[in-house]
Structure formats: structure tokens, C-alpha cells
């Protein structure tokens, strides 16, 4: 609050009412509802529900299918996060180096930010098209018979590629603005102290980018977990069957398609706990380590 804030009593309440109403109805109610449903078993014909305690949770951890999805989610998240961060960092450092064409590069490298994930998935469908997809043909030249939608690991590969493609721009924007925020004097000092460009990068630039990088790490994990839904749904064409999928996609498939409200809710709750843990970790880290300013 500002030290000389206004004293009016009703106005602030009036100002808060819309926000509070919306989050009460569409945030807290659903969250509590999910928590509650996760302890019940829904009758498949819609006649009531029975309390089953933690059964929904235990059966999840006993299900080899759920564990497989969980494993894939971890692999998917790690690969997408790592490659999109690394690629973006490389491009940002280069874009920060060049003077000529810097603006054009910036535009060319960031426009994909505005492409919706399912549209990105759609573009992937074209590139990996079974009959004539250019990338499929390219891989064919190297003797790799790429079968998206049929082969588990090929489909996973396509999902990961597309998800990386879609995420590079955000990371690029943040890294570039992080680089541009490094004071000129610091760069000049480094230029005097260290004659090798890569030495300067690892000793000076990289540590100074650490706060940005850490922030992006969290953003990317969240992206890989949740925002890739559209990519996955398009790539598997709404037919999960034997295809790879992430935890969020499974929540949707089980709950919306399979009508297993209890199981789906339990999965939701597990995801909520995961996100909360991630956030707590983020706050901890930010507090403890990474601040130079």
C-alpha cells in the first residue's frame, strides 16, 4: 500500500468485487470441487457417488499406464525445456552481438510466440505428413522411416520438436532483454579482463543471466506440463490410443472422454501439488541464491 492511501471504505470493496467474484466461482469452487471429487467414485450412469477415500490415488499409482504417462511427461519436460532454452540462449547471444539486421532477426525469431499451440501442432502434421511431409522425406533419406501417429517414439519426437519450436521465441525474448540489461560498463570491464569471447560468456554473461534463466526454467516447465496440450491433441488427432501423452492430457482424456471424474480429479490434485511444489521451490531459490541487483 502507498503510505498516503485513500481512506474511502466502500470504494475499494466495490473495486475488488468483480475480481473476487470471478475467482470464487471459477477458481476456488472448481479447486475445492476437484479435491472433493478425488475422494469419490462416480457412478458411470450418473447416479450419485460413493466415498472411496484415497482409492482413486492408490489405483493411479498402481496403474502401469499412469506411470508410463508420468515417465513420458518427465522426459518430455526435460527435453523441451533444455533444448528450447539452449537454442534460445544461443540465438539471443548472437542477436545481441550483431548490429546489422538485429531488428529483422528479432522479429523473425519471435513471431512464433503468437502462434497457438494447436496451430503449431497442425504445422507439424504438414511437415511430418505420412504421404509427402518434407521432414518425413528428409528423414527417409537417412534411412529413418518416420511414422508419426503409428510409432510411439516417432510421435514423441514430433511432439517434442514442435513444442520446442513453439517455445524458443519466449525464451529468446527474455534472454535478449536480459542480455541488453547487462550494463555496458560490465561488458567493457570484461572485454579488458578476458581476451577470449567464450571465456567472457561463461565467466561474466552467463552468471549475470542466471536470474533470467532460472525464471525461464520455471516458465518452461510450466509450459511443457500444461500449455503443450494443444500440440499433443493435434498431433495425436484426438486419438490417444497407443500414442504418447502428458499428464494434463490424461486428465482430460480420462475425465472428459472416459467419464472417470474421480480418477481425473485425483490426477488434477496431483498436478496441483506438483505446481505448488514448483512454486515454493521457485520462491525459495529466488530468495536464497539468485540476486545480483
Amino acid at each position: 500500500m502507498k503510505r498516503a492511501g485513500f481512506d474511502s471504505r466502500w470504494l475499494p470493496i466495490l473495486l475488488l468485487v468483480p475480481q473476487l467474484t470471478i475467482i470464487a466461482v471459477f477458481f476456488y469452487w472448481p479447486a475445492v470441487y476437484a479435491l472433493k471429487s478425488s475422494f469419490f467414485l462416480q457412478d458411470p450412469f450418473g447416479f450419485g457417488q460413493t466415498f472411496v477415500g484415497l482409492e482413486n490415488y492408490t489405483s493411479l499409482f498402481d496403474s502401469s499406464e499412469y506411470l508410463k504417462v508420468a515417465n513420458f511427461t518427465v522426459l518430455f519436460t526435460v527435453l523441451v525445456t533444455f533444448f528450447s532454452l539452449a537454442l534460445a540462449l544461443l540465438l539471443a547471444v548472437k542477436a545481441d552481438n550483431v548490429l546489422r539486421g538485429a531488428k529483422t532477426y528479432r522479429t523473425l525469431l519471435m513471431w512464433v510466440y503468437a502462434v497457438a499451440p494447436p496451430v503449431a501442432g497442425f504445422m507439424g502434421l504438414l511437415l511430418f505428413n505420412q504421404r509427402w511431409g518434407p521432414l518425413m522425406e528428409l528423414f527417409g533419406h537417412f534411412g529413418w522411416e518416420f511414422e508419426m501417429g503409428a510409432d510411439y517414439s516417432d510421435t514423441a519426437f514430433a511432439m517434442i520438436m514442435i513444442s520446442i519450436w513453439k517455445q524458443v521465441p519466449v525464451n529468446f525474448i527474455f534472454f535478449l532483454s536480459g542480455l541488453q540489461a547487462i550494463p555496458k560498463a560490465v561488458r567493457e570491464a570484461a572485454l579488458i579482463d578476458n581476451r577470449s569471447a567464450s571465456g567472457r560468456f561463461w565467466d561474466v554473461t552467463f552468471p549475470l543471466l542466471a536470474p533470467t534463466g532460472f525464471f525461464l526454467l520455471i516458465i518452461n516447465i510450466t509450459y511443457a506440463l500444461f500449455d503443450t496440450f494443444g500440440v499433443i491433441d493435434t498431433v495425436v488427432r484426438g486419438e490417444p490410443s497407443n500414442n504418447p501423452m502428458t499428464l494434463v492430457y490424461k486428465v482430460y482424456v480420462d475425465g472428459f472422454r472416459g467419464n472417470d471424474l474421480g480418477g481425473s480429479s485425483a490426477q488434477s490434485v496431483i498436478l496441483m501439488v506438483l505446481v505448488l511444489a514448483l512454486t515454493v521451490f521457485q520462491f525459495r531459490m529466488v530468495e536464497r541464491r539468485i540476486h545480483y541487483t
Binding site: F26, F27, V251, F256, L271, V275
Partner: peptide, 13 residues
């Protein structure tokens, strides 16, 4: 908590 994790109950409501 992003919308995705509470998608089903939000739908129901």
C-alpha cells in the same frame, strides 16, 4: 494453478 489442472470441475461448474 493454471486452468488446465482444474479443467474438469471448471467445466462442470
Amino acid at each position: 494453478l493454471p486452468l488446465e489442472v482444474r479443467i474438469l470441475p471448471s467445466y462442470e461448474i
